[in-house]
Nucleic acid binder design. Structure first.
Lengths: 109, 109
DNA sequence: TTACTATATGATTATATACTCACATAATAA
DNA sequence: TTATTATGTGAGTATATAATCATATAGTAA
């Protein structure tokens, strides 16, 4: 691959990962994996101010991770990247393995 | 899962994702997937100051993504999370799909 | 010992991020 | 029309992040 497009790919990957790397946003994504929801319910679920949640949602829409539609007064957000859940399963498997290594280490002390 | 440990899991996931979400760090990980390397060579490869690279490496070690060993004057870094490469393949597949959707949209205009 | 090399770190600066509060906008109902 | 509700956004603040330069540390060789 050309150096230039390699750089662009790194930037794009970083952009998406950045959009995913916040506890609140991960909680939102975890909630949305079971179906689309309005800002109101999302805020209630994750336990944060609506205005704050609204900003996090906008950020993820910008990165292409979420999409939304208006429905009367409400705005409904849903997962846009189809592989999001596979992605998080992979991450969780990594964490599980990390934890195993750590406990193995602890037992060896 | 208990709410408390759920929160901890979100935090841990965010910590790891954050450690991965920078173009330079992604370039480093991409280089290291072919084998361990010293700071010197990593810096040359990714085209950044050694001191800067050193900080990015330390950050990833803290998150458990990398590990290192000393070898004479050099410090050798290598991938610690075995699933890192699978993880990035998944991400790249997502990006590819996003790009396809975009170009489909463009053709429709 | 001194000189050289690889790496790490303190200090500084610039920029980005997250959160809160107040207010603006837009859809709906009375 | 006015009132109510859901959402978004501007302003301000606090904190985090990234990069650079100078300096410190530690291993090696002469």
């Amino acid at each position: 691959m050309a150096k230039r497009s390699q750089k662009l790919l790194y930037d794009k990957q970083a952009e998406i990962l950045k959009a995913l790397s916040h506890p609140l946003r991960i909680a939102i994504l975890d909630y949305l994996k079971d179906g689309e929801q309005c800002v109101c319910d999302i805020a209630k679920k994750v336990g944060s101010e609506r205005s704050n949640v609204s900003r996090h949602l906008a950020l993820m829409v910008n990165a292409g991770v979420l999409s939304y539609k208006k429905q009367g007064l409400k705005v409904i957000y849903k997962l846009q990247m189809p592989c999001t859940s596979k992605f998080f399963s992979c991450l969780q498997a990594c964490i599980k393995q990390q934890a195993k290594e750590t406990s193995k280490l602890l037992r060896a002390i």
